[in-house]
Amino acid sequence: MQIMSKRIFSLIFLFMLSSFNVNADTSLEEESDSSRYVIEGRVFPLSDYQTSQVNWQANTKIHVNGGEYIGFVRKDGSFVVHNIPAGSYVVEVLNPEYTFEPARVEINSKGKYRARKVNHIKTSEVIVVPYPLRMKALGRTRYFQIREQWRITDLLFNPMIMMMVLPLFLIMVLPKMMNDPDTKKEMEQIQSMAKFELPEMSDMVSNFLAGSSQTEKSDKSQVPNKKNQKIRKRIDK
């Protein structure tokens, strides 16, 4: 809390300083050229600026009306754009890594300032922002798409996998959880019923070629026969 209050105090102090500067500058300007004004403000860095960009001030520029007038950011983050005649201007802060919200500054012929949010659609709408400008970074600019990474969770929460896993869980785990002998027996019965032999490929093809329903019976008798034969062979070996 103490730190907070300290920071606020220092901010206020800075603003007082900057407002003092305005007066000094305008008086200077009036001496030389009455129709030229300055736009000033301050760029507030994000807290992770210090870690990522060593001298962000040098990489940050102020563009007024898309580069018609330009300003540079000083070490403390403040900026002044000189030699501006009365009019309406869009002030942008440009930094390759961070995005800032632009502001519209209007200077009337008497030298009064008004700053407001830029709204290209409702151009007459006025949302006043404080002047001298306080430009805060909206966030890190994301230029890149994030590449999709293969994650195990993605796979598991895939609906198809879920559909497969759940019945499997029901079939495999639930019977083992049941201890009741009767139900166990029943389950075994069901299991034994469920256990049907997969017909062999060759049989299927031959059946298909035969194409008649009468082979059903012989089919049923054949399959175990074949199996038995095979088994016998193996035993003989």
């Binding site: 540079f72 950011v73 070490k75």
Partner: peptide
């Protein structure tokens, strides 16, 4: 660093 220190017109 190329940072602006002061500017006047």
């Amino acid at each position: 660093s190329g940072t602006l220190l002061s500017e006047w017109t």
